[in-house]
Simulated scan of single mutants.
Amino acid sequence: MICGVDEAGKGAVLGPMVIGAVGCERETDLPAGVRDSKVLTPRKRERLYAEITGSFPWGVVKIPAAEIDRLRQEMTMNTLVARGHADAVRTLIPTPLTAYVDACDVNEERYGSTVAALLGGACTVVSRNHGDALFPVVSAASIVAKVTRDRAIEALHAEAGDIGSGYPSDQTTITYLKDYIAGHGMPPACARQSWETVTRLMDRRRQATLGDF
């Protein structure tokens, strides 16, 4: 068996990062239409997600915002993602002979070596930038990761209101963070407090508070 591994939400300021893994014997066995999740419509992603999870070995690893903040005190973000990729491979039984991973480092070989070391040499690791566009099995993993994260964000919407996509580039997300910090004096639990977006907003609030005296 081979597998593909990819993550969703690495750069988000709100919500978890989700790493997906999908196994198959041959990439030609995967459903027709499997592509990088970013180029698919939500409806098509959901349909393919159902087909993939209904017919192939798969697994997900979710890393909540607070856990990301904690781990970033001990390691780089690239190492954190590599550890998540290795953990996602371990969810598959039997262990794949080869794991294709979407490299989160400009140095593909270095990233692949990191994941392979974390797996203890249990399988061969092929690491490529933009692997979700190169290998259908990584595309399948990207679909599983993206749909799982989207559902987590939908749950946060139901709990907290309109938080946007959770990415710093989303003005709705930034407005939500500003309003929450203004009203509570701290970021929401779903925020990655170590992100520059949050620390900058907290600094602005502290400066504004000092200006009141």
Rank of each mutant, 00 (worst) to 15 (best):
C190D: 10
E196C: 00
G84E: 01
A12W: 11
V115F: 06
T173R: 04
E159S: 13
S37E: 02
D132H: 01
R47M: 13
I174N: 06
A160Q: 11
T91E: 14
W58L: 01
V5A: 00
P188F: 06
T124S: 05
R205M: 08
I68P: 09
A86Q: 02
R204L: 14
S127Q: 02
L156W: 10
D162M: 00
I63K: 00
I181L: 04
S165G: 05
A158S: 13
E109K: 14
A145Q: 03
V115L: 01
G185H: 05
V34P: 04
T53L: 01
P16N: 07
G161A: 09
I181D: 10
T199Y: 00
A82T: 10
G54T: 01
T175Q: 12
L30C: 10
A65H: 12
A141D: 13
R45G: 00
A158K: 12
A8H: 08
R45E: 02
T91Y: 05
T98N: 08
P57F: 02
D36F: 06
L80R: 06
C123D: 13
K38T: 09
T124Y: 00
S194Y: 07
I93H: 13
V144K: 01
L14K: 03
E51N: 06
L30G: 09
R43I: 09
T197G: 11
W58C: 06
R151V: 03
G121E: 15
L118P: 04
T95D: 05
V34K: 07
T79K: 12
A66G: 09
G23S: 15
I63F: 03
S55T: 11
E74G: 05
I93K: 14
F56C: 09
G112S: 07
L210N: 12
S113Y: 07
I153A: 03
T209N: 10
A152E: 15
R43D: 14
